[in-house]
């Protein structure tokens, strides 16, 4: 479980990018941070993983305060974190296997054979075969995402962070990546936080949703209440496309019929 407590973040004096955000992300669930581009989703995610220092507030990883952790404790926490970046962030100069081996080579005490076996297991678990000795540039976007997920889970993390995992992918590949993240979350009982503005992904795999608007938490709740949130900013975000506007019309007419 990850608790975000009253987090504020600014890059320029007196211009808060995140304004007093508090929320809780539960383990074994798909938690999603949604919002428009530039709303502060990625900044919040980077604050949670420690890439940005907080102006104020705190992040608690299963009760452990991130801001008051020693360097050694932070290193320990890092080994419990897996992250999937928007652009995959695979190391260009390493092969796919070497990419997956990288965290193990740096932190694991396992033998080389065990590390190789684990890397192979992780790659096969995400559905990658026969690409072990290829370089990231030789793979498609979807395969790169899978390889990045394999690297993220190589150390058996307790927390998985995904920054826009579907960006740049076709709908079918995007849904497969979503399904893979869900499977892994349930399988390893991870606390998973996905940062997205893809509504299809939200509706198909999201469980606990946090909506960020202009740096503030505008709404929070389960996916089922997304369409009846009574939050105008969230409604504007969800019903921006014609398809969802039609869906809302149907929804409203159904509700009036029921009344």
């Amino acid at each position: 479980m990850i608790e975000v407590r009253d987090v504020c973040k600014s890059f320029v004096a007196n211009e808060l990018v995140l304004k007093h955000i508090s929320t809780t992300f539960h383990s074994g669930k798909i938690n999603q941070i949604i919002g428009r581009s530039g709303s502060g989703k990625t900044v919040l995610l980077k604050c949670i993983v420690g890439l940005h220092t907080l102006d104020s507030g705190d992040i608690l990883y299963d009760g452990r305060s991130f801001t008051s952790m020693s360097k050694k404790e932070k290193m320990q926490l890092c080994s419990e974190i897996g992250m999937l970046f928007q652009g995959s962030a695979l190391f260009d100069s390493l092969t796919i296997t070497e990419n997956v081996l990288f965290p193990m080579q740096m932190f694991s005490e396992k033998s080389e054979k065990e590390q190789q076996d684990r890397a192979r297991f992780c790659l096969e678990r995400v559905g990658l075969y026969n690409v072990f000795d290829m370089y990231p540039a030789e793979l498609s976007g979807g395969m790169q995402k899978r390889a990045a997920i394999a690297r993220a889970i190589s150390l058996n993390p307790k927390y998985l962070f995904c920054d826009e995992p579907n960006s740049g992918l076709d709908p079918l590949t995007a849904s497969k990546i979503d399904e893979l993240i869900v499977e892994l979350t349930k399988e390893f009982q991870m606390t998973t936080i996905i940062n997205t503005h893809d509504l299809n992904s939200v509706l198909s795999v999201g469980e606990h949703i946090v909506f960020i608007h202009k740096g503030e938490k505008a709404w929070e709740g389960p996916k089922e209440k997304l369409f009846v949130s009574n939050c105008p900013e969230l409604d504007d975000f969800i019903f921006a496309s014609e398809m969802y506007q039609k869906f809302r019309t149907t929804l409203v007419s159904e509700q009036s019929g029921q009344i």
Partner: peptide
């Protein structure tokens, strides 16, 4: 620089490297 803008350096930092 390319490693920085493609978030490879961020990935290392998150891993604790």
């Amino acid at each position: 620089g390319t490693m920085r803008i493609s978030e490879q350096i961020d990935a290392m930092d998150i891993m604790g490297v």
